[in-house]
């Protein structure tokens, strides 16, 4: 009976993942390897191609600017018109930063819907659901991001664009420091060769984590976490019979992800303090008093 239970859970979580995420690893790999009938993504490798992408992929590269205050959801600032080339470059970097934010907001929304579909999640105290999302979404986001990355770049705009690693690295500090650690993580993580069914369970395990600060009912979250982690362990044994150490290796990645999120939160804080840019209210909520 236990085996049957875990198979049902695996199926439910995999289905929730396939239903709620616009991009998945199978889709991303088809695009990245050119094995798809859809047009090849637009390669973004400099400011010129970035601006071309902004015009042609406008629908999925929304670069809104967000008000700083909590009450200002949806308020827009208008950048002053500038002629100076350096300022134009700075504006483009800020717009790129906002594109990243829009993608993050979209993924957080998808992750919330995914979490709600994980059996047991919605039975938790509402405060605990908030806590689990607050601390889990960025770890989950960087896990999903790895699916869209190869050693040379990252798929963006729902597969319509491919932004090169070198271009991202060439941006002015602190923007240029933002993505490199994610590429390094992705290279190591992608070497595990997980598929979407494995990733679905891993992302569910990230979100349903019993040691997040401030949980009201730790034992209930731990019970949920235990059932997901057991399902993940059994699923990996069945799905990757030749790789018996995959489960412990995957669990080690949780520590890497936590470190990646801490570094990322510090960079975002630095950008918020020193740059003339703003943060989406949802992301403000997540980062506030995080670590």
């Amino acid at each position: 009976p236990m085996e049957a239970d875990h198979k049902i859970l695996v199926k439910q979580i995999h289905e929730a993942y396939m239903k709620n995420f616009n991009m998945n690893k199978a889709k991303a790999r088809l695009i990245l390897t050119g094995k798809t009938s859809t047009p090849q993504p637009l390669i973004i490798h400099d400011m010129e191609t970035f601006q071309l992408a902004e015009r042609t992929l406008a629908v999925h590269m929304v670069s809104g600017d967000y008000a700083e205050s909590d009450g200002g959801v949806g308020d827009r600032q208008v950048f002053p018109a500038v002629a100076c080339e350096e300022l134009e470059q700075r504006e483009a970097e800020a717009r790129l930063f906002h594109c990243c934010q829009s993608t993050s907001v979209e993924t957080v929304t998808e992750l919330t819907e995914f979490a709600k579909a994980v059996p047991g999640f919605q039975s938790l105290d509402l405060n605990d659901q908030v806590t689990l999302l607050k601390y889990g979404v960025y770890e989950a986001l960087f896990t999903l991001l790895a699916s869209c990355m190869n050693k040379d770049g990252l798929l963006v705009a729902r597969g319509g664009g491919f932004i090169t690693r070198e271009f991202l690295k060439s941006l002015r500090r602190p923007f240029g420091d933002m993505m490199e650690p994610k590429f390094q993580f992705a290279t190591r993580f992608n070497a595990l060769e997980l598929d979407d069914s494995d990733l679905a369970l891993f992302v569910a395990a990230i979100i349903c984590c019993g040691d997040r600060p401030g949980l009201v009912d730790v034992s209930l979250v731990e019970q949920l976490q235990e059932s997901i982690v057991q399902a993940l362990r059994l699923h990996l044994l069945a799905n990757h019979p030749d790789d018996t150490f995959l489960f412990p290796r995957l669990l080690q990645k949780l520590a890497d992800l936590r470190e990646l999120v801490t570094e990322h939160a510090q960079l975002v804080q630095e950008i918020k303090t020193n740059e003339d840019t703003s943060l989406h209210p949802l992301l403000q909520e997540i980062y506030r008093d995080m670590y």
């Binding site: 809104g64 907001v105 709600k116 908030v130 806590t131 989406h280 209210p281 909520e285």
Partner: peptide, 21 residues
């Protein structure tokens, strides 16, 4: 927690996209 995480609460209770807010 609810006061500090209004949008997360809203997302948990319905599926309004924060992009559209």
């Amino acid at each position: 927690l609810k006061e500090k995480h209004k949008i997360l609460h809203q997302l948990l209770q319905n599926s309004t996209s924060p992009v559209d807010l």
